[in-house]
């Protein structure tokens, strides 16, 4: 079985985003960029399935600017076998990403596609579900456990009330939640080896997908700022405050 793992280059998890003064977006100039954390979990899960003998090949794919190549090299250094870069400088919305991924799935015929549940830049949480719809295949979203059982996959999902397990006919789409695994760090020898692994360059046009956005961003602004309040001296003062508020 082959596993396809889409990865996105996003602002690093530890960087606090700054809104541009002209309201046109978030300032990404000279900001550290990394692989979307949920996608790292997806790469790790694919590698574990390969190590367990459930998969033979892992193909990483990224849709984005030339620099997304670095993100793909990270996936290759972690353990993916080859990579596809669908290069574009335009911002590509989840629906168009899903259409490009569908075209790649049609070519590559993976048994599983594992994606992060959301990217930490646009926080959309859509691509996996959309890809599953376009392919007419089942989806196991927000996964905290993935078990292959013959020609189906059992996915335990993190839902609002706790956990839920579904059984999906393969090929299937899985999106990762935080507790699925802890991604490994790529070792130096593996980073060197990753430079020699195959990386294909494509464009959205190669897949016949139109990426013009459907949503127009009119404005990006700072969220309302919460002012720090008061500090109380001791528990008695806190109790008094709570009583004032009618809480106690």
């Amino acid at each position: 079985m082959k596993i396809l793992v889409p990865v996105k280059r996003v602002i690093d998890y530890n960087v606090k985003p700054r809104v541009k003064a002209d309201g046109s977006g978030v300032d990404l100039a000279n900001v550290k960029m990394s692989m979307n954390p949920f996608d790292e979990i997806a790469v790790e899960e694919a590698i574990r399935l390969k190590e367990a003998g459930s998969a033979e090949e892992i193909v990483a794919v990224s849709i984005g600017p030339a620099k997304a190549q670095e993100t793909l090299r990270t996936a290759l250094a972690m353990g993916a076998d080859r990579a596809i870069l669908v290069q574009t400088d335009d911002e590509v919305e989840p629906l168009a990403v899903a259409k490009i991924l569908k075209a790649i799935v049609d070519e590559e015929t993976p048994g599983l596609v594992i994606l992060g549940k959301q990217a930490i830049d646009d926080d959309s949480n859509q691509t996996g579900q959309m890809l599953a719809a376009l392919l007419g295949r089942p989806q196991g979203t927000f996964a905290s456990k993935v078990v292959i059982e013959g020609d189906s996959v059992s996915v335990t999902r993190e839902v609002d009330g706790g956990l839920e397990t579904v059984k999906l006919a393969m090929p299937a789409i899985v999106t990762t939640d935080l507790r699925l695994n802890e991604p490994r760090y790529a070792s130096l020898p593996n980073i060197m080896k990753a430079k020699k692994k195959p990386l294909d360059n494509k464009t959205p046009a190669d897949y016949g997908v139109e990426t013009a956005p459907r949503l127009k961003t009119l404005k990006v602004s700072e969220p309302p700022v919460r002012q720090a309040g008061i500090k109380v001296e001791d528990v008695d003062a806190l109790v008094a405050k709570l009583k004032e508020m009618g809480v106690a």
Binding site: P94, Q129, T141, V159, D160
Partner: peptide, 23 residues
């Protein structure tokens, strides 16, 4: 935007060829 809504809505959007507006 519960785990149920987030699971179902994008699948609907793709079937309708619509870009979802999340959250």
């Amino acid at each position: 935007a519960t785990t149920t809504g987030k699971n179902i809505a994008p699948r609907v959007a793709a079937l309708l060829d619509v870009m979802q507006i999340s959250d």
